[in-house]
Design a protein around this nucleic acid. Sequence first.
RNA 1: GGCGCGGUACCCAAGUGGUAAGGGAGAGGUCUGCAAAACCUUUAUGCGUCGGUUCGAUUCCGACCCGCGCCUCCA
Length: 492
Amino acid sequence: MILRLFNTLSGQMDDLLPADGAVLRMYACGPTVYDYGHIGNFRTFLQVDLLRRTLHLFGVPVRHVMNITDVDDKIIRNAAAAGIPIADYTPRFEQAFLDDLQSLAVQRPEVLSRATAHIPQMVHLVQQLAARNAAYRTDDGNWYFRLSSFPDYGKLSKKDLEGMADGARVDVDEYERDSARDFALWKATPAGETGWDTPIGRGRPGWHLECSAMAMEYLGESFDLHAGGEDLMFPHHENEIAQSESATGKLFARHWFHVRFLLVNGRKMSKSEGNFFTLRDLLLRGYKASAIRLALLSVPYRHQLNFTFDGLLEATSAIDRLRTFAARLRAAQLPSGSMPATMAAVAAARQSFLEALANDLNTAEARAAIFEMVRQGNIALDADQLLTEDRDAMLHLLDDFDSVFAVIADHDAEPTRAAIEWARANGQLDSVAPELIAADSLTDAEIDARIEERNLARRQRNFRRADQIRDELAALGILLEDSRDGVRWKRR
RNA sequence: GGCGCGGUACCCAAGUGGUAAGGGAGAGGUCUGCAAAACCUUUAUGCGUCGGUUCGAUUCCGACCCGCGCCUCCA
C-alpha cells in the first residue's frame, strides 16, 4: 500500500514515499514546555502518531524527529514568575508531556531534540544566512531574516506578501527592522537574562530558528515530511522554509502535513471560555485514555473535530464493543477449518481498512470497515458457524487495526492511576471523580470477598441480600456482571 | 478586508453522478432469579436553501443563508 496524503505545499494529494527509497524522514513540531498539554495539542500529536503507525503498517521505515522547545518568551516569563531558572522549570513539563504521550499510547519519535542543546547549530544557520545577505543585525543586537531576499515566501500558506500588507494586523514592536514583516532569528538579551554568549552576540533563539536547525541536524538539508498543527503553517512553517532554503539553496521539506484544530463544544478552546482541558483533567474525570485516543483519532485529520464529553462516551462504548469481540474470539472453542464466505468478508474488510488509511488517513472509514467485520463475526459466532481459520483471520485484522489505532489492547489502568497520583501530589484531589477514589479505596481482594459473599447469598436464593451487595459495590464504581463462567467485575 | 473549511438521521460521522457506510443513543428481541453485560434486529424517499446542467444530483455549477478556522503567541 502507498499512502496518498494531502500535501499543503503542493495543494494536492501526493504519494508519500521516502525520497531515498529507504527511510522516510519526518519532522514534527513538538511542544513548548511551559504548561501541561491540552487535548488540542494531543489531537495533533495523535494524528502524527497515526501517520507514522500507518507508514509502519505499510512497510515504510520511519525516522521521526520531534523538538522540545525549552526556551521561549512564555517559559522565561513563567519561570521568572515562579522565581526559578528555566533549566529547573522546563524539565517538569517536558516529563509531564512525555508521560501524557505514553498514556495516549503515542510512540516515541526516534529523536527528541531540545532547543537549548542546539544553540551552536542555530548560530551557524544565522551565519550562513548572513553570508548570503539574507540576515542582518540591528543596532540593538537582534538578528532578522530579510524577507525581501526570499521571493518564494508564502508558497506554503498561499499568502501574497503584497496582499498581507493591507487589512491584516501587522505586528509592530519595539525593534528596528528594515521591513515590518522581517522576522526575528536571534533576540539579543542583556547579561542577567536568559541567553547564550555566541559569535553572533549574546542572545537567545527566535522561535522558528530551532526547528530549521534541528531538522537539518538530524534529517539533512532536505527531507520527506514536516508536520504540525494548522496554526503553525503561517508564520512558523513559512519562516522555517524561508530561512532553511535561503541557507542551503535546497528544498527544505517535500511534503507538509497539517492537522486541523479541534473545537470544544463548538468553540475554539481557551482558558477564558472555560472549555480548556488537559489530558489529566479528562483522566481525573474518569474518562479512559483509550477513549480519549479514539475520540481524537476518529475524525479525519483535515476536518475540524468538535470535542465533547458525549464523544468520549461514544468512544468508550465503541472500544468496549471491540474489546468484547476480541475476547470472545480468543475464548471461543471452534472446529478447525474455514468458511469461504467468512474468509471473503474478512478479506474485504481488510481491503477497505487499508484503502481507507491509504486515502489520506481516512480514519472514520477505516474504523467502519472493522466494525462491519465485528458484526459479521458476532453473527457467525452466534450461529456456531465460525471456524478456526476464520477466527485467526479476524484476529489478525484486529491486530493490524490496533497497530494503528492502539485502543483494543487495554492499558487504561495505568494512566488513570498515574493521574490520581499526580493529583494527590499536587493537592488537586478535589478535582478527581468520586468513583475513581472510591474504587481505588477497595483492594481487589476485598472486592473478591464481597463477591464471594454475594455468590453465597445467590446460591441460597437470598436475592435480596445479593442485590444489596451489588448495589453497594456499584456505589463505589464497581460493576458486577454475572455470566455462565462466573462473576466478572470492573471498575467504572 | 484577504485566505480556507464545513452544513448528511436524536448525537458523532463516511461517502458516491444512479438513488444514503460505521459508531453512539433510543426501541424491539434473545439470554438472565432480577439486573448488568453481550449479541441480533430496527431508526434519513432524505443529505442547509433556491436555481441550473443531466435520462438521473446528496454528489457537478451558480447564488444565498448559517457555523467555524487562519491572517497575532497558539497544536
